[in-house]
Design a protein around this nucleic acid. Structure first.
Length: 268
DNA sequence: ATGACCCAAGGATTGGGA
């Protein structure tokens, strides 16, 4: 607590699809204690807001904005400092599913998102994914004008390039890897966002998700579908971006690993 | 092998995930 107005302190941001917060809360609390992020966005909490574990998180030192629903989806934004101007989902896009939560923390606009899965090209769910992505993009264009310092992070359910797929030939044209989904990812980049992970040298075969089946984690057969995108004005402030595989080794893991980024940011 | 695993709901299976 020795910072002053002129000092800079790294701001740690993270995203994690935890596939049920009810099941994974102990792991989230452990992870928070180890990494002490300023912001952690969660996807697939699968909890209505009345069941959100505010008390346990508060005891550990994090406050939470939550936006949940029964059974599926559900997102949350945990932060050390207060989160201001919370917004749920994509304004103007009528959606029964709880997928986006945004707020400002220490002057940074954070958008945490759980992109639709899409199931299979040609399906109704794929059409919904495409409509959702269209809406996200037009909303984000305006958000970036309003908040030049913006981070979009979450489970994108898109593997942007072949190097983000353990077997690109087998996955070609399959969900997460279709040309349409990848075009949408490039649209997001075109809005003035940068893939934080690719700002740095990374080990080949870096994934953020591994199927529960087929011993996929042990064989390192996965996809990189969880991302942290930063606005252009933040690009030079990104100090690191990495995937933390450690929680995937837990006894009852989520199928996703958290993605972490550090920003040089004025102390508040 | 149109499989395999995990979760919620519900109280056996099914839908959804990716």
């Amino acid at each position: 607590m020795s910072s002053n107005a002129l000092s800079f302190s790294d701001m740690k941001l993270a995203t994690w699809n935890i596939n049920s917060l009810a099941v994974r809360l102990p792991q989230v609390l452990d992870w928070l204690q180890v990494h002490e992020p300023d912001v952690l966005v969660l996807q697939e909490t699968k909890l209505t807001d009345d069941k959100f574990p505010h008390a346990e998180l508060q005891r550990a030192g994090w406050q939470a904005q939550c936006f949940g629903q029964r059974t599926y989806n559900g997102v949350a934004l945990l932060s050390r400092q207060p989160a201001d101007e919370p917004v749920h989902n994509i304004p103007g896009f009528d959606d029964a599913q709880a997928r986006v939560i945004s707020a400002s923390v220490k002057g940074l606009r954070v958008v945490g998102a759980y992109f639709p899965n899409g199931q299979e090209p040609g399906s109704d769910k794929f059409a919904y994914k495409m409509a959702w992505l269209d809406a996200l993009e037009s909303w984000l264009r305006a958000q970036l004008a309003r908040y030049p310092n913006l981070v979009l992070m979450g489970d994108f359910n898109i593997a942007p390039e072949d190097r983000d797929v353990y077997d690109p030939e087998a996955w070609r044209g399959k969900i997460h890897c279709t040309d349409e989904e990848r075009a949408h990812f490039r649209n997001l980049i075109g809005l003035g966002l940068v893939d934080g992970f690719r700002l740095f040298e990374q080990a080949p075969k870096s994934w953020s998700w591994w199927d529960y089946r087929n011993l996929a984690f042990r064989r390192n057969q996965g996809l990189r579908i969880d991302h942290i995108l930063v606005s252009e004005s933040l690009k030079s402030k990104v100090l690191s971006c990495s995937i933390d595989k450690t929680p995937r080794k837990n006894e009852r893991p989520s199928d996703h690993a958290p993605v972490l980024a550090e920003l040089a940011w004025p102390a508040h």
